[in-house]
Design a protein around this nucleic acid. Structure first.
Lengths: 242, 242
DNA sequence: TAGATTGTTAATCGATTAACAATC
DNA sequence: TAGATTGTTAATCGATTAACAATC
């Protein structure tokens, strides 16, 4: 892997610093472009993209600016240019190897996400403490004993680690990853991890996400009930549970 | 479920509109408070919280303001007040029933997250199209035929739906959920869903999240290599794959 | 009292949105 | 040409951070 060319912009200039919101939208654009292409188009405008994804066209244009692909007024962007540019910019041509720790249900689910490889992430092995899991294969990936992680990570120059263990064990796993020279941790355990400054921690905390969802729902129901003449839609009858 | 009291603030005033970033931090505070309590403390300051979570104490204070629990200068907040206030505000005392569609690996993983119930979410049933899955139980929850969803959702006043099907099927599932009166959809499929305005779509798009992670990692490695005298840490030797 | 902390208001920062000239 | 669209700069909006009086 040559990191110097991993995130090249199509215009050859050095990569801009891109905000996280922008970065999370780029894959959406890529997906839409594939659909748009399948529908037989050869060019695409920011208006087209914005309409499908319900985004401001100006925002789309600004986001695409970071990718460094030039469009043409009145015509838009050439589809193939733009998809190629996005893939190059997102580093999807150069695959990063990753280790996953925690061969439970969430870990297994992630091991089965085959499309990660098209997005630059290849999970090469899983690790666990449970002797009944060690030695087995999940979605074709070996499950190895956790203690082997630091050494293997170092030898294989693994830079990305994925944590899918219970919260109580997550910090110990993170420590092993740091020991093995891992530089970015995708953490699915519901706990904030402590790590040296040079290690990136990216939290996928479903409980935090759930809180946001619940609150959004509540706010909607609440605002409905506050409009005069509209009753809240809450269930008032008893509901059978499982 | 009485939605009128679901998200009460401790001071009795009506709930403020809280930004999503704030909302996603509140569960972190709650978790820390539980630890802090276990460690024997009876009060807590924003400085304490900020130190553990690596957040600005002022931000913590601002966030807690939304919850409506009063603190005392020099002393901080009474722990039990604050945890109670957070739980009340986040609606964790009143559980919302939810349906999950897609009994694959991700769906099974979520069905096994028992702590969701402590956070106000009870997944009461799963749905699928696959006849080999229908009629079985996963983590104690029945798997029902998808076609029964709209009717059941309506009868049981289900407001939350969780989608863990492949991208290609997600929109059809969302349509059924809307038909069943579901008001909030937690979408794990990598696709943007279209739904009426009154339905909240909350996307958990791992591919977008992955893009952010990769880019953060790249930016770090890049900035290292740009400092004079420091070589990039990229792997230069061949790496055995699985 | 002295000093840490809350509560709140003001300043800063960054992302989104608007405006508009250039252009095909 | 007319009008849609890019590229870019300015304005707005909202979240974070700083400042500071009140207080225990």
């Amino acid at each position: 892997m040559n990191i110097k060319t991993q995130f090249n912009r199509a215009d050859g200039t050095s990569p801009k610093i891109v905000s996280e919101p922008t970065l999370k939208r780029l894959p959406l654009y890529h997906r839409f472009l594939k659909e748009w292409q399948a529908a037989g188009h050869e060019t695409v405008s920011c208006t087209d993209i914005g309409q499908d994804l319900d985004l401001d066209p100006t925002q789309v244009r600004k986001d695409l600016e970071s990718v460094g692909v030039a469009g043409r007024p009145r015509i838009g962007y050439v589809l193939t240019n733009l998809t190629d540019g996005l893939e190059k910019f997102l580093g999807w041509n150069n695959v990063n190897d990753a280790f996953l720790v925690g061969a439970g249900s969430m870990g297994s689910a992630l091991l089965g996400y085959r499309k990660f490889e098209q997005c630059g992430l290849k999970i090469v092995s899983a690790f666990d403490l449970d002797p009944s899991k060690i030695g087995t294969r999940i979605h074709g990936k070996h499950v190895l004993p956790l203690e082997k992680l630091p050494n293997l990570a170092q030898r294989m120059h693994i830079l990305i680690g994925i944590i899918t263990v219970p919260a109580a064990e997550a910090q110990a796993v993170a420590d092993l990853m740091v020991e093995g020279g891992i530089r970015a941790i995708w953490n699915f355990a519901p706990i904030r991890l402590h790590a040296p400054e040079h290690v990136i921690i990216h939290n996928e905390d479903l409980y935090c996400s759930l809180a946001a969802l619940s609150q959004k729902l509540f706010a909607t129901l609440q605002s409905k009930s506050e409009k005069p003449g509209l009753k809240p839609k809450a269930a008032t009858t008893a509901v059978p549970s499982n």
